[in-house]
Design a protein around this nucleic acid. Structure first.
Lengths: 193, 193
DNA sequence: GTAATACTTTACCGTTCGGTATGGTATTAC
DNA sequence: GTAATACCATACCGAACGGTAAAGTATTAC
């Protein structure tokens, strides 16, 4: 009995995710959230708990979506080298096309919250570890198909590529010349051989 | 005429730098600052202007000190390969030795402020560009001495190494297993040949 | 229809925020 | 010594913060 929730919880969470992604945790106020989510303050508390809990839910939603997106992109191409190239180049294209650089929600959180909050240290670490495994599996596929050298250290290489991806994502926030980023991508992709 | 300033401005700025470095801009309050700097609130305003201006002064102090520190480390070793290795390994050691990961003040600022404040976009970009030139000069020295291959693209390589350095610094905030970082460093250093 | 229930809305809570006006105090120039 | 000056410390400002109590409203079960 009783009334049913009027707003779409998933849709509201998505709006919160966009906002936290853009502005980070501290700089996002509850007023920002209510106006963007289209619901009132107590609705946030009844549906999600509080600001921190809402942030965590938003981050979880983001990391799950992002991981499966990356997995798909790397699997869609029969050539592993081409798959990584397209992935990196698309990433750069998107950041330079948009007027604004959101970067990666998980990376932003690693910088803002992970050093002071163990929950987010763990959450972001697990996401990065998961991505590095996705990278590793793609590289191992390339080794099995003969596209990549047999002697390749798939684990170390995937970890280095992930670290480079993070570095790329972060430095683009300072809007360096496009050639800077393009050069870096070329050097990284040359590791795949 | 009139009274002279009682506190050491440079020392107070240094305390502010440490605090902003640890906690970022938004999460650092004026109360935090006054207690750590050992001075009262109006003294901050008369000496530095305001919170944003104090932050900027602290960031400038940091980037200048950091750049010259890095330049020194890369010049101190006759072998460029060894210089980069020591530089990266020391960086990792320091982060894993301390219980707490401050990372790099400029990188933290790139993530927190650069996307929303052009002044810090420019400031952080210029610092990164400066570092990449330091890297490039080191690599070019290595090419002249014959330690590195003549065909090396010094510019692209230095940019890629800088991007990797940023990625390393950031991912360490999530405290991955040490082997993860060590592996990445090995792959990156292998680019120097 | 009725009573119970759970959501929405409004208004408000104490606290903390960045920033400043004010008054006391030490130092300077003369 | 004296007057002018500039720093220091306290107290305070309005605004915004995260969070919640209370009242109104729609929906449910019976």
């Amino acid at each position: 009995m009783g009334r049913n929730r009027e707003f779409d919880e998933e849709q509201a969470l998505d709006a919160a995710m966009q906002l936290f992604w853009e502005k980070g945790y501290e700089a996002t106020s509850l007023s920002d959230l209510t106006s963007r989510m289209g619901i009132q303050r107590p609705s946030i508390y009844s549906a999600f708990g509080g600001k921190k809990e809402l942030f965590e839910a938003a981050l979880r939603k983001y990391t799950m979506a992002r991981a499966s997106e990356i997995r798909t992109k790397l699997q869609n191409n029969p050539s592993v080298k081409q798959a990584f190239r397209t992935f990196f180049e698309d990433l750069v294209d998107e950041e330079y096309t948009e007027g604004f650089s959101r970067g990666c929600f998980s990376i932003n959180t690693m910088v803002e919250l992970a050093p002071h909050d163990e929950k987010f240290e763990i959450l972001t670490r697990e996401h990065q570890m998961y991505l590095s495994v996705i990278f590793q599996e793609a590289i191992e596929r390339g080794m099995q198909s003969g596209e990549l050298e047999q002697g390749t250290n798939a684990k170390a290489l995937s970890q280095a590529l992930l670290v480079s991806l993070i570095g790329l994502t972060v430095i683009m926030k300072s809007r360096p010349e496009r050639s800077f980023v393009d050069n870096s991508v070329e050097v990284m992709l040359a590791l795949l051989k």
